[in-house]
Computed example of a mutant assay.
Amino acid sequence: MALLPDHLLAGHKAFMSGRYRTEEQRYRELARAGQEPETLVIACCDSRAAPETIFDAAPGELFVIRNVANLMPPYSPDGEYHATSAALEFAVQALKVKHIVVLGHGRCGGIKAALDPESKPLSPGDFIGKWMSMVEAPAKIVRGNELMTAGERQTALERISIRFSLANLRSFPCVSILEGKGRLTLHGAWFDISTGELWAMDPETGDFQRPVIDIPDPDPAA
Rank of each mutant, 00 (worst) to 15 (best):
S171M: 10
D126W: 03
R170P: 06
P173V: 14
F164A: 03
I128E: 05
H187I: 13
F172D: 05
A156E: 15
F164R: 10
S165P: 10
I128G: 00
C174L: 14
S123Y: 04
N145A: 09
K130I: 13
T195M: 00
Q154N: 11
L166N: 08
Q154I: 01
N168M: 02
S176E: 14
I177V: 14
L198Y: 03
E136A: 15
G182W: 05
I193W: 00
M132E: 08
A150N: 08
G125T: 12
R163A: 14
Q154K: 00
P124A: 05
L122D: 11
A156T: 15
R163Y: 00
L157K: 09
R183P: 01
W190Q: 06
D192A: 12
R170V: 06
W190T: 07
K181D: 14
A189S: 13
A167I: 02
M134G: 11
T155R: 14
N145L: 10
T149S: 15
E197M: 04
L184R: 08
H187M: 07
D192K: 04
L198A: 03
S165M: 05
L169C: 09
S165T: 08
G182M: 07
M134T: 13
L198F: 01
E179F: 02
G144W: 05
I160H: 00
E179A: 13
A156K: 14
I128V: 15
H187W: 09
I177W: 00
A167R: 13
G129Y: 06
G125H: 11
I193F: 00
E136K: 13
F191Y: 15
S176K: 12
I160S: 02
A137C: 03
S133M: 02
I141R: 13
V142C: 05
A150W: 03
